[in-house]
Design a protein around this nucleic acid. Structure first.
Lengths: 252, 252
DNA sequence: GAGTGGTCTAGACCACATA
DNA sequence: ATGTGGTCTAGACCACTCG
């Protein structure tokens, strides 16, 4: 096992800090540097490669951001132990993956109407006035003529700008709110659960009643932390899954 | 609406870059700076506060990391539009939340034995030799005397170090592998699905057969990307949920 | 006290976008 | 041509850890 010196090309168009970062990343990934082991000191590295310490720090800060090393003032910089129990699911997957696969998918608008808020809805939006009106609509996402998910959505209605039917098919509720209300959506809360689907959902999705489904409730907030949108989505359990890669996985 | 100058205390123990970062973060969160708007140029900020441009850049790079702004070479730095459709579920929640709530939880070891790999298992671990032995064990997690999840786990068996029963109860499979085999777990892949639970699972968890459950399969890899651990966990659908906060949510 | 990482400076040159 | 962000330098002083 030859422990070769890392090649750094100072005249390359690739930034020095990036070459250095990749070099350490590679050593950690290969296991040349094992969890708990220490990196050379910043001054060592700077001297060895004849570069500025600030450049070295830039490289190391990238490693820290990637969660591969951690620095301790006064002690040194050490290779981290990958956190493999912390799963992170990017829920992008849910609809993006379908698009990526190049499947023939489409969104169908089942219903759209302006409604007055009942008590339940007023509670969700933390609103007391009874006169407030809401936009309510339901959509179905299908791919290859198979229905995959069903969504019901609510937003505070604002007649300032007309809404096209095509826009209601856009899966992004925050996008709709930003474009057609005076509210600026800046944060959201989502809750993912599993459930047995209801009779209605089963009919719409063409699956058996009580079949397991993903259920995602989303609340959208504006800058004042007021709820300005709410949706509930049901995803077929036999057609969706979430995948998560953790640790030093290569994702170049 | 008074647009007051941000106060920066150069003699404070709090780093200048951090004060500056917090200042912009606050402005963005309050909506003083809206998505799409540009920040002052780095030189402007440096001049105004009489600090070095590198310090300004450090502050801005924190904002970039937080996903609140993005920089474009030659154009400027702009407030980002929060990505609210990208959900990120931290699956920490699954077991950590139970601990946080201070519930009376415990892990029960149902079974543990050394086995020879059948064809199925050899395929999972990409192993051809028939003589390889595996450690197989099953655990149940319960809280307040209610059973919540059921896990079956496999690792390549290595008799190098004796394993205590208490260690098999530790929910962290990577931890077990690191401590008791010659392998160094550095990455893992997890797949989350929903399913109707089997008869066996229903019996163990004390729920109805066909009840909806979370199902998480985990594969653990070492530095050479060889599978060294595999587990399948079943979580009661009526007791677990995942929550995700996105955008400019305050998480101080 | 010696060595480490953390912060900060005051410059420099570059790549890129825009007019 | 001007102005922007991106990289890099060669120092400086500090807070912290450890022997």
């Amino acid at each position: 096992m030859i422990h070769e010196e890392m090649p750094i090309d100072k005249s390359s168009v690739i930034p020095i800090y990036y070459q250095l970062f990749k070099s350490f990343e590679e050593q950690i990934r290969r296991g040349d540097l094992k969890p708990g082991e220490s990196l050379p000191t910043e001054n060592d590295i700077a001297t060895r490669y004849e570069i500025s310490r600030m450049t070295v720090r830039r490289a190391i800060s990238e490693l820290v951001s990637a969660g591969m090393v951690y620095a301790q003032q006064g002690r040194g910089t050490f290779v981290a132990t990958p956190k493999l129990d912390n799963i992170v699911f990017e829920l992008n997957d849910f609809n993006e993956e379908i698009k990526k696969r190049g499947l023939n998918y489409k969104t169908t608008l089942l219903e759209a109407k302006i409604i007055r808020a009942d008590e339940n809805l007023r509670a969700k939006f933390q609103i007391t006035e009874e006169h407030k009106r809401f936009l309510f609509f339901r959509t179905v996402l299908s791919a290859e003529s198979e229905r995959l998910s069903y969504e019901v959505k609510y937003t505070i209605y604002s007649k300032s700008k007309p809404i096209l039917e095509s826009e209601l098919k856009d899966p992004s509720l925050p996008g709709l709110i930003a474009a057609h209300t005076e509210y600026v959506p800046v944060s959201s809360k989502k809750v993912l659960q599993v459930a047995a689907c209801t009779e209605e959902e089963a009919l719409i999705l063409g699956i058996a009643p009580q079949a397991p489904v993903f259920l995602i409730e989303q609340t959208i907030f504006d800058t004042e932390l007021r709820p300005v949108g709410w949706s509930k989505a049901v995803y077929r359990g036999d057609r969706y899954k979430l995948t998560s890669y953790d640790g030093w996985y290569k994702k170049d």
